[in-house]
Write a protein that binds this DNA or RNA. Sequence first.
DNA 1: CGAATCGTTGACAGGGTTCAATTTACGTGG
DNA 2: CCACGTAAATTGAACCCTGTCAACGATTCG
Lengths: 242, 242
Amino acid sequence: MPVKCENCPLRKQPLFTEMSQKDIERTQRFKSGELSVDAGTDILAKGANIPQLYTVLRGMGVRSKNLPDGRRQVINLVFPGDFIGLQAGVMGEMSHAVQATTDMILCVFDRKDFYEWFSANPTRAFDLTWLAATEEHFLGDALMTLGQRTAIGGLAWALLRIHARCTQTGMARDGAVPMPFRQQDIADALGLSLVHTNKTLSRLRERQLLSWSDGQLQIHDPEALMQLAQIESADLPQRPLI
Amino acid sequence: MPVKCENCPLRKQPLFTEMSQKDIERTQRFKSGELSVDAGTDILAKGANIPQLYTVLRGMGVRSKNLPDGRRQVINLVFPGDFIGLQAGVMGEMSHAVQATTDMILCVFDRKDFYEWFSANPTRAFDLTWLAATEEHFLGDALMTLGQRTAIGGLAWALLRIHARCTQTGMARDGAVPMPFRQQDIADALGLSLVHTNKTLSRLRERQLLSWSDGQLQIHDPEALMQLAQIESADLPQRPLI
DNA sequence: CGAATCGTTGACAGGGTTCAATTTACGTGG
DNA sequence: CCACGTAAATTGAACCCTGTCAACGATTCG
């Protein structure tokens, strides 16, 4: 049976902002059900005109685009709390695909209710716009990574981000966070080849800056990694939950 | 004296969607003035907490981020009709800088009116969200370019886009559009060195696919360029104007 | 056990960067 | 009107980071 928004386990996590009782109820009304998908499933196909929007309740995935020649670019990784389908919601069509990396549970919202929900709740509409703007911000950072950072700097940046995101949504156990993605996924996200990603990763491991094995990621030397990535802080801003 | 929204020359361009008389009036009320800046001026500095939002009425610019080591990533180029400052509007702080490449004229909106404007006009709020989602889409394409396309493919992609954007806002004269950006700007946008950008560009010229000189860009062989860029169409979707 | 998936490692080639010098265009001051 | 300084474009050459090819090990699963 679906989780009541009131009891949503995500909302209590430090990453997310407070929500008024009223907004919780509104979200509850907007929510039409839950969807469970197995690892490997395509949640949204590029170009799909799907009638639903989702919020990730559990599990992780990958947003990606493909070139005609088969090359794949991972746009970003999908974590619990992420809202999926805004593009389909406002533009009518997805420009990228979303695939489940682990088993996932998604809160489902009907697209036909979307505009009404958006219009009737300026606060929540604003939250959604905030999310979109933040996503834009993130993609700017990602561009910076692909365009200007070296392979080792980019890897440091990506793994720091993943670690921070997982930690701030309560997924850390003894400093280790789940890391279900393949090296190929990270390579496609950073615009690197699998081979070079692997070799660069092993350099990070040799220097004992982090460890990543058996689906678990640990950061041993955040300072050194932040220096490699040329960032000053790995903290993420609090964000609204839809 | 400021242009009345009612007489806005941009709105008539094919790139932009129709606007109801009511929305035009609302925008007019929201607009607090115009700002003229000279080429080279920094319109928004990174981290700035500026009290204003802008829509580009005339001229072009560049959005960019800098790494501590001095490397620069151009996030995207700024054209007439673009809305600037959404991040400052919703997040309170800019994550990138905007610099004027040519002389520019900007419509100015007060940030203090922003939330009220947003709340009172669901249709326009939706338009703004649409813009944010579209920008996200664009940045996804840009990521694809930096991550997966070769230098020549990336250049083809970028120049096709610039040409399309200018053409659809009525800036074309005999097939040529204004191209005020330096090769360095394009290089920074594509994550390439200036030298390599220059050499790649000269290959495109040799093959007579385009010409770019004296601040003018012409596309001679769109089909061949689209094939290099691996895109099927250079058309841009109609977008709302804020 | 065999097939499939993912991770690891070595060798080699190439696209792209960096360094450096030259050219062109253009504005400024004497 | 010309000398000079500056910004941008262009070209050549050496180097190297990263991609590609290829093989092998580890693990899982039917």
